[in-house]
Write a protein that binds this DNA or RNA. Structure first.
Lengths: 208, 208
DNA sequence: TACACTAAATGCAACGTTGCATTCGGTGCA
DNA sequence: TGCACCGAATGCAACGTTGCATTTAGTGTA
């Protein structure tokens, strides 16, 4: 049956064209503020259809942003592949990913797109940043679970969630310190913060 | 000057009457779903005024919920008071608070108020739960910072945030396990989850 | 092809939320 | 008291979001 429900296919196409239209607008104008009507026209669907696929415009933006961060998750798969059979502790696995992944590039782009001129974060910005990280959280959770199927799901969930949460904390700190500019200094600061986070979470908070 | 800007006073009164009206409706009907008009009438202010004080109806609900959890924060102040001069590590301070505080009672109430019949969480529920915990997060952060002024703010922020995030994780787990019912078994499970969380965060994720 | 069935898209009305212009009422001063 | 000033409240129009009824178009059957 090659004729696998063409309706499903059309539905996916519509959804995709909505996300694509959002991505295009965001790249063109370096902002995530556009009207529903504008998006509907650009995606060539009705206004209402957008809300059939997404709970809100922000959700569309989040998914578009998520694609920018997708490579971070893919990066995970490429490091210390499970195929080597080497037993890498799950924590080190994750820690190494965050060390090696280039988070700066997508973070700077996202800060521009989600941000305003004001260095102070608006509530919307704060929330959107949080959700962008949650997005990574879920993707990483799935990926890690498939790579370490023997681990306790709750434990993995807590680990990933704790890590991602920590990342958000240092991201906000990094933002306020250097204004999300991509420079040698800011990259250096970021590395330090990542190390600090990893150390804190590795050794726990109980030991100092 | 006892005549300290009466306008400020009036403004605070309006804000309070909005929150109070929300609390009243929530207690009466055990739900957080009411219309803006309904709230405006109950608080005896204009519809628009509500949005002058709060970014959304959900924000009003969150603040009303926050008051339910306020005692948890107050509880913190009552345990191992700084006045004793005993040097309690900041982590133990926080851990002990979560051990001793009765989180079950407010959690069960909030689950009822925020929840639907469906045991599965709606996106709104999930978000509201998250925000209710964030609310505690901020209150605790302020409290802890004032009690341990010598500690690095970033470190304290990371600690509180990590803790609260972990609490949210086990809360969601607890919900799905026992349906947020207050019973000896559920309290027992909750204690176990709290211990598990504290242990994980105390010793870190790097050691097993 | 004709037709019934159904998922998805659409139109529309109601409610949530926001930006802006206007009104209301407290404060300070002549 | 009379008046200018200003912050908060209000009214209103526009846009975001949702629930529901209707239309459109793919699928299976005769």
């Amino acid at each position: 049956m090659t004729a696998v429900d063409r309706r499903t296919e059309i539905k996916a196409k519509h959804r995709q064209s909505i996300v694509d239209a959002a991505s295009t607008i965001m790249r063109q104008r370096l902002t995530s503020e556009f009207s529903v009507d504008e998006l509907a026209v650009a995606a060539d669907v009705s206004r209402r259809t957008i809300f059939n696929h997404f709970a809100s415009i922000d959700d569309v933006v989040i998914e578009a942003c998520g694609n920018e961060l997708a490579e971070v998750v893919e990066h995970l798969a490429s490091i210390s592949p499970a195929s080597t059979g080497t037993k890498v502790p799950i924590f080190d696995d994750l820690a190494e990913t965050f060390r090696q992944a280039d988070l700066i590039t997508p973070m700077v782009y996202l800060t521009k797109v989600l941000g305003s001129d004001d260095p102070q974060l608006t509530p919307r910005q704060a929330q959107m940043s949080g959700r962008a990280f949650t997005e990574i959280n879920e993707r990483l959770g799935r990926e890690l679970h498939s790579r370490h199927p023997e681990a306790d799901p709750l434990e993995v969930g807590l680990l990933v969630s704790t890590m991602t949460n920590g990342l958000l904390v240092i991201y906000l700190h990094w933002m306020s310190e250097c204004g999300a500019v991509d420079s040698p200094e800011s990259r250096n600061l970021w590395s330090q913060l990542v190390e600090r986070l990893i150390t804190s979470l590795r050794t726990g908070f109980g030991s100092h």
